[in-house]
Design a protein around this nucleic acid. Structure first.
Lengths: 121, 121
DNA sequence: ACGGGTACTTACCAAAAGGTGCATACTTGA
DNA sequence: TCAAGTATGCACCTTTTGGTAAGTACCCGT
C-alpha cells in the first residue's frame, strides 16, 4: 500500500539543504560581515560593496526568515535598525568554516578555472 | 600612488570561492553520487532522478573544468564513459561534510522555512 | 533494415535571479 | 522649506539558469 515515496525526499543530502540557505549572490558575504558583530543596515551596505538596496534587503529577509539573521529595530527617533547573527546563524558559520578554508586554499585554482571558462566562451 | 584595489578581490572569503564551484542545481547531488565511486554516464543519470541530459552534461563539464570530476572514456567498442572524483574533488567533499552535517541536523527547520516562504507568496 | 541503447549536442523557451532607479515616511541640519 | 540621510518598497527590465525536445553518431541484436 505504500506510495513510492511516502515521505518528502526534498533534499538528497544535508549539503543540498544547506545550499538552499546560503546560496544567493550576497548571502555568504552578508553572513561573513555579520559574523563580526551586529551591523546597521547602511553600514552593511557600505561593506558589501556593489550590492543594491533591493538585493540587500531581499537577502536579509530571506536569511531572517531562515532564522540565520536577526533584525533589530531600535525604535529610535532617527530610524535605526541593525542586523546580527542568531545562534543558529552562528552554528551555520561554524559549519561553513571548512568550506571557507577549502576555498581559501584553492582560491587561485578556482579563479583560474573561472577565467578559463570565461575566456573560452 | 596605489590604486584603490591593486589586486583581484574576486572573492570576499573562501566560502565565496567555494560556492562558485558547488552551486548549481545538480552539482551537490552529482558529487554526492560520485563520492561513492566511478559511475557511468547513464547510471549517473538514473541516480540523479529528474535531471536532463543537457543539465547533467553541462554540470559535469563545469565540474570537470574545475578539476573536481574526471571523465574517463574507455574507448571501447560500445561507447563507454565514466565519471569519478579527482583527489581535488575528494578534498572538496571532505570540506563539505560539516555543511552536510549541519544540513542534516536542521533539515526540518530549513524545509519548514522554505515552506513558509512558498506559502506566503 | 529497424528498433534500441550509449553518450552527447543543439535550438528554443520559461522561470528565476539579479539590477536600476524612483518613491516613501520619517528625521535632522542649514 | 529644502536638501540629505536612514531604512525600506515597488515597477520594470536584463541576465542567468534550467527545462523540453529533438537530433547525431555509433554500435548491437534480430
Amino acid at each position: 500500500m505504500a506510495k513510492e515515496n511516502s515521505e518528502t525526499p526534498r533534499f538528497i543530502c544535508g549539503l543540498h539543504a544547506t545550499l538552499h540557505v546560503i546560496s544567493g549572490k550576497w548571502k555568504p558575504l552578508i553572513v561573513f560581515f555579520l559574523n563580526k558583530g551586529p551591523t546597521r543596515y547602511g553600514e552593511l551596505k557600505r561593506s558589501v560593496r556593489g550590492v543594491s538596496d533591493k538585493m540587500l534587503i531581499q537577502q536579509l529577509k530571506e536569511l531572517e526568515s531562515d532564522g540565520i539573521v536577526r533584525r533589530t529595530d531600535h525604535g529610535e527617533i532617527p530610524l535605526r535598525v541593525d542586523y546580527s547573527l542568531t545562534p543558529f546563524g552562528t552554528s551555520l558559520v561554524r559549519a561553513m568554516e571548512p568550506l571557507c578554508g577549502w576555498g581559501e586554499t584553492y582560491e587561485e585554482d578556482i579563479a583560474a578555472a573561472m577565467d578559463r571558462r570565461k575566456t573560452s566562451r
